[in-house]
Design a protein around this nucleic acid. Structure first.
Length: 711
DNA sequence: AACATCCTTATCCCATGTTT
DNA sequence: AAACATGGGATAAGGATGTT
């Protein structure tokens, strides 16, 4: 998608400017740092995605049109060495479409998507594993991958000739002064503070650009301007009374379309913003939304007729019908709720009058209100309020707003003052809930966006628990949140895994049935995918059955929280200990150590094929049939060398002092040169960072280049 | 037919949130 | 701080259902 690339990059640039201009209160030091940081981010993303930005790595893939690749003798690449692949932007521009061939040998031809997939897999695996790369590319075999690798390698080496190996051409480390370190620390801190801000602005810019594009797309502005050129203004009012009125109709229609689109987009963006960082409260609200929807579905399915005739009946039968119509969990929850209400009422010595299934208003009752409601329930009996509230309970048998509930409860009593006082407070929970409702986030929205699988409230609790494990408890900076993308990803993961397991289990069961035939000797459910089938399927995947107890006990063990004191120790464990455990735990969890869990089928089935880099000077044959000890020096040679070294060290005692002095002087000079180079580099760094105009400097130039090359 | 296993219900305790 | 409501979790009892 070159179009979206360029679009995004333009937005990047715009956001750069915005961020820089928004940073006027900060010192000028940070100005130069931001673009390079963003360029680095972009390059890293591009690298991971597999598409190499061409301006960035000109030295890695040099244009060595004259030197043929060294391996052409064996695989006779006729006329298209791979240096035509990169470093010729116009060519890659021409062949940017995914289907056209951008490199070909006698063996195969590569399209852009394949090359991108290749580089992505190369960055994920390594050059040592062409088999895994081939599996990831999916359209190329191992031999083709090896060919491509070898060709790239040979080109890289032929470009690097003259200067020797990689170590000598790589930029040397430079020692910088303390001021620079301090300044860089400050810049990093400022950057960390500014980053979220910048991301927000970036998002804003992207949206503005989308709006602009859509406007230009939908409203035929150019035509209209040509038609109403004498008016000059592009004020889209109804003054298009010129001769061509089909054009004006088109404009009006386009405008209407754009308006509709814009409104829809704005609503969607509001939703996105609202869902951007989901804390546990949000997750709970979403959970309740999903639960409500589920119960409503169930109620619609089952209890339409039940609630219709039961409302006039007694309240208890109403409740009972409701109970049978709901899902088990919600039924249990409601039963508990009612039970606890009865219990509390008994404890207070009151009568047992279950008025509603809905959640009641929490918190302490006001004095007179308490008295009045008690009177009310005593006086009024069951019927009118029961009818009213029973209806409400069947419609929305869950959380309601406090004000509406106050309306429903106190509306019978007719107390305006208490109502208004009750309206006042809105809890955080209910605020979030009403926000979601206003933004149109409901169960169907969540279902459409793939977030309706989990119990999100539990997910939030789990997040809090893991966070309390991960971090020392005293730094409570920042709340824990999750992005909806992550939820979606997790859900997709679960769905994929489950469908895979079911698939395997079904296939296995069918095969078993086929083997067993229709014989009567086999007992048990033949046509039922039962637990052993699923277990077998899990085994073939390579998953271990890890129950919750195992997992969490392992977790406890991992963090050295002894099981009897875990609840308090989560608060009071010393932070150094936790930190220590964390480093050892996050590096390799026991799941990762147990290597039979996460292997892909390719990993599990095939033996690894290794391809050593060509700089090791091992031939391809040696690679596939490794004779490793051949390229290492033999034992005798090693012994000889060490003996030589020993002799040399013995001899070095008797070297004359002037040679030593000369060496020392040379060393000194080398040091001096290093210091000079370091100073120069540091000055360059300062210059780059202290630039005033970020538009004219290198970073934006390169990004412009990048845009022009990609789009 | 005996038994295991899962599911449901009842009951209690406690943590947490919410309002006065 | 106190009152109040809810939900989570634990536990026991008992029923339903599948397995041996």
């Amino acid at each position: 998608m070159p179009r979206s690339d360029s679009e995004d990059d333009e937005v990047h640039q715009e956001a750069n400017k915005l961020a820089v201009h928004g940073l006027t209160d900060a010192p000028d030091i940070y100005i130069g740092y931001l673009p390079s940081f963003r360029a680095h981010l972009r390059d890293t993303r591009a690298h991971l995605a597999g598409s190499i930005p061409f301006y960035d790595t000109p030295h890695l893939i040099p244009s060595t049109k004259s030197t043929p690749p060294p391996h052409t003798d064996q695989d006779d690449v006729p006329s298209s060495p791979p240096q035509q692949v990169e470093h010729s932007p116009e060519l890659s521009l021409l062949t940017r479409e995914s289907k056209s061939t951008i490199w070909s040998s006698s063996l195969s031809s590569w399209s852009q998507t394949e090359v991108d997939a290749f580089f992505h897999a190369l960055s994920v695996y390594s050059r040592w594993r062409p088999d895994l790369i081939a599996e990831a590319v999916e359209t190329k075999g191992e031999v083709e991958i090896v060919e491509f690798l070898i060709t790239l390698d040979s080109c890289a080496r032929s470009g690097a000739t003259g200067t020797g190996d990689v170590m000598s051409t790589a930029p040397a480390a430079i020692e910088v002064s303390d001021e620079w370190v301090v300044a860089e620390e400050a810049m990093a801190a400022a950057l960390a503070v500014e980053e979220t801000h910048g991301e927000l602005q970036e998002l804003e810019a992207l949206r503005r650009k989308r709006v602009r594009d859509a406007k230009a797309d939908m409203i035929p502005r150019g035509k209209r301007r040509r038609v109403t050129a004498e008016v000059g203004e592009d004020e889209d009012s109804e003054r298009d009374d010129v001769e061509d009125e089909s054009m004006s109709v088109e404009v009006v229609k386009g405008k209407a379309r754009f308006d509709k689109w814009h409104a829809r987009k704005i609503a969607a963006w509001e939703r996105d913003d609202l869902l951007g960082k989901l804390e546990d409260v949000h997750l709970q609200v979403l959970d309740v939304i999903l639960r409500e929807d589920e119960e409503a579905q169930k109620g619609k399915d089952l209890s339409r007729e039940g609630s219709a005739d039961v409302i006039s009946q007694d309240l208890h039968t109403n409740l009972k019908v409701d109970m049978t119509a709901l899902t088990p969990t919600s039924r249990r929850r409601l039963a508990k709720r009612l039970y606890m209400r009865r219990k509390r009422a008994q404890l207070r010595g009151e009568d047992v009058v279950p008025v509603t299934l809905a959640r009641m208003k929490p918190g302490r009752k006001r004095k007179e209100t308490v008295a009045r409601t008690v009177e009310e329930t005593d006086n009024e009996g069951v019927l009118p309020s029961g009818q009213d509230i029973g209806n409400q309970a069947t419609m929305t048998p869950d959380l309601t707003e406090p004000d509406s509930e106050a309306d429903n409860d106190d509306g019978n009593t007719g107390k305006a003052a208490t109502k208004h006082i009750n309206v006042g407070g809105k809890t955080r929970y209910q605020k979030v809930k009403s926000d979601f409702e206003n933004a149109g986030i409901n169960a169907s929205y969540l279902g459409e966006h793939g977030m309706d699988l989990f119990h999100l409230g539990r997910l939030g609790k789990l997040m809090g628990m893991y966070k309390s494990l991960e971090q020392p408890p005293e730094d409570d900076v920042g709340t824990t949140f999750i992005s909806p993308e992550l939820i979606r990803y997790l859900q997709a993961l679960v769905v994929a895994f489950t469908s895979d397991v079911i698939h395997r289990a079904t296939v296995w069961k069918e095969q078993a049935n086929e083997l067993k035939g229709q014989k009567k000797v086999w007992r048990g459910a033949l046509h039922q995918v039962n637990q052993p089938a699923v277990q077998h399927a899990l085994k073939t995947i390579g998953a271990r059955s890890l129950s919750q107890e195992e997992h969490f006990s392992k977790l406890l063990h991992q963090y050295e929280l002894s099981p009897d004191t875990q609840k308090r120790k989560q608060k009071s464990s010393p932070p150094a200990d936790v930190e220590d455990e964390r480093t050892s735990a996050t590096g390799h969890s026991p799941d990762a150590e147990n290597c039979d869990i996460a292997l892909s089928p390719h990993h599990a089935i095939y033996t690894p094929a290794l391809l050593t880099p060509a700089s090791f000077d091992i031939g391809a044959v040696d690679t596939f049939f490794p004779g490793y000890d051949r390229q290492f020096p033999s034992k005798a040679l090693i012994n000889e060398d060490s003996r030589d070294a020993v002799e040399a060290s013995l001899l070095s005692d008797e070297t004359d002092s002037e040679a030593l002095d000369a060496e020392l002087v040379e060393d000194e000079m080398l040091d001096q040169a290093d210091v000079e180079a370091g100073k120069k580099v540091e000055e360059q760094l300062w210059v780059e960072v202290e630039r005033e105009e970020p538009e004219g400097d290198d970073a934006s130039v390169t990004s412009e280049q990048y845009i022009s090359e990609c789009g």
